[in-house]
Nucleic acid binder design. Structure first.
Length: 299
DNA sequence: AAGTGATCCAACCGCCGAGAA
DNA sequence: CTTCTCGGCGGTTGGATCACT
C-alpha cells in the first residue's frame, strides 16, 4: 500500500518551473483526492486533472497511480494458474507487449504482468543460463511448466466448469505419432519425462478417442469463434500447448480459457504445497526437474 | 535474534506516436 | 510542414519484505 512506503527516505520532492511536484509513494490523502476527482470528472486529461485536482503530481503519475492501483476493477493477489498459462502463451506470441497481454487478463495491469515475467519467469531462464526468449526455454516451458499449470488450472476450475457445456475433443498426440517420435529420437522419451505428460486420470478421458485424448468443454460462442481444437498435447514435440492462434485474441480473455479447461483431478505429480502461499510461481517451478527436462529436449 | 541475500512490486524514466495548433 | 502537448508503453530502479543461515 501507499502507507507502506510513506515513511521511505526516497520520498522526495522536485522542482519543476514554479510548481513544486511531489514524487515517491502516494499518501492516503492523495489517493482519496484522485479517486474523488475521477469520480466527479472521469478519467483522461491527466495533465488537466493533475493541475486542477490539487494534487502536486504530474499527469503521468496520476494516470499510473489510477491505472495500476486505484482503479476499482484491479485484481490483487497471486496470479492464478490460468493467468500464468495465458501470460506465457501470449508472451510467446507477442513478446514484451505487456499492455496487449494485459488486455486479455481482466483486472491485471501491464505492470503486474511485466513484473511477473521479469521476476519469476526470467529468473528461471537466468538460472538455466538460457535466453528467456529462446525456443529452448519456450520448449522447456511448454513441456514442463504448462502441463502443471494445466493440471492446476483444471483442478481450480473444476467446480466452475459448467457440465452443460458442449464438449470438444482435445487431440493429444496419437499413438502413431508417439511411435514415430520414439523411433526418431528414443533418448528423448523416458519414464522420468513422460510422467510430466501423463494425461489426467481415466475418468476424464474420452473412451472413443485415442488413449491420450481428453474432453474439454466448448468455449462460449460469444468469446470464441468456430475453432475446436484450442489445446493440443504432443509430448514428443512441444508438449502441451494452448494454441492461441486458434482464437480471436482481441475478444478472448482469461474467462474463456478458464471455461475451456478440463475438470482435471489434481494428479500425484502436482508439486503444490498449500502451505506455500506467497509465490505460486515458485510452487510450479522446480529447477532440478526443469534442468532434467531440458536435458531431454531435442537439440 | 541478528545479519544478509533474494524477491517483490510501486513508481519513475525515457521514448514514441497521435493529434492539435 | 513543423512544433508542441499528451497519453501510452516498455524498461529500470530502489525500498520493503521475506527467507535463509
Amino acid at each position: 500500500m501507499c502507507e507502506k512506503r510513506a515513511s521511505s527516505s526516497s520520498y522526495d520532492r522536485i522542482e519543476l518551473g514554479m510548481e513544486e511536484l511531489r514524487r515517491g509513494p502516494w499518501t492516503v490523502e492523495e489517493d482519496t483526492l484522485l479517486i474523488h476527482y475521477i469520480a466527479c470528472h472521469g478519467e483522461g486529461r491527466w495533465n488537466l486533472l493533475a493541475r486542477s485536482s490539487g494534487l502536486r503530481r504530474t499527469g503521468k503519475s496520476c494516470r499510473l497511480r489510477w491505472l495500476n492501483y486505484l482503479k476499482p476493477d484491479i485484481k490483487r493477489g497471486n496470479l492464478s494458474p490460468e493467468e500464468q498459462l495465458l501470460i506465457i502463451e501470449l508472451h510467446a506470441k507477442w513478446g514484451n507487449r505487456w499492455s496487449r497481454i494485459a488486455r486479455h487478463l481482466p483486472g491485471r495491469t501491464d505492470n503486474e504482468i511485466k513484473n511477473y515475467w521479469r521476476t519469476r519467469v526470467q529468473k528461471q531462464a537466468r538460472q538455466l543460463k538460457i535466453d528467456a526468449d529462446s525456443t529452448t526455454f519456450r520448449d522447456a516451458v511448454r513441456c514442463y511448466l504448462m502441463p502443471r499449470l494445466l493440471e492446476r488450472t483444471g483442478s481450480s476450475s473444476s467446480q466452475a466448469a459448467p457440465s452443460s457445456l458442449d464438449a470438444v475433443t482435445i487431440s493429444a498426440a496419437t499413438t502413431a505419432a508417439a511411435d514415430q517420435a520414439r523411433q526418431a529420437s528414443p533418448r528423448d522419451i523416458s519414464d522420468a519425462s513422460m510422467r510430466y505428460y501423463e494425461p489426467p486420470g481415466p475418468e476424464i478421458r474420452s473412451p472413443s478417442t485415442s488413449p491420450c485424448s481428453t474432453v474439454l468443454p466448448r468455449l462460449p460462442a460469444t468469446t470464441m469463434a468456430e475453432s475446436d481444437v484450442a489445446v493440443t498435447f504432443n509430448p514428443f514435440s512441444s508438449g502441451y500447448s494452448v494454441d492461441v492462434s486458434a482464437y480471436d485474441l482481441d475478444t478472448w480473455d482469461i474467462a474463456s480459457l478458464s471455461a475451456s479447461l478440463p475438470s482435471y483431478a489434481v494428479s500425484e505429480y502436482t508439486v503444490c504445497n498449500n502451505n506455500c502461499s506467497r509465490n505460486i510461481g515458485d510452487r510450479l517451478w522446480s529447477m532440478d526437474e526443469l534442468h532434467d527436462m531440458l536435458r531431454k529436449l531435442p537439440e
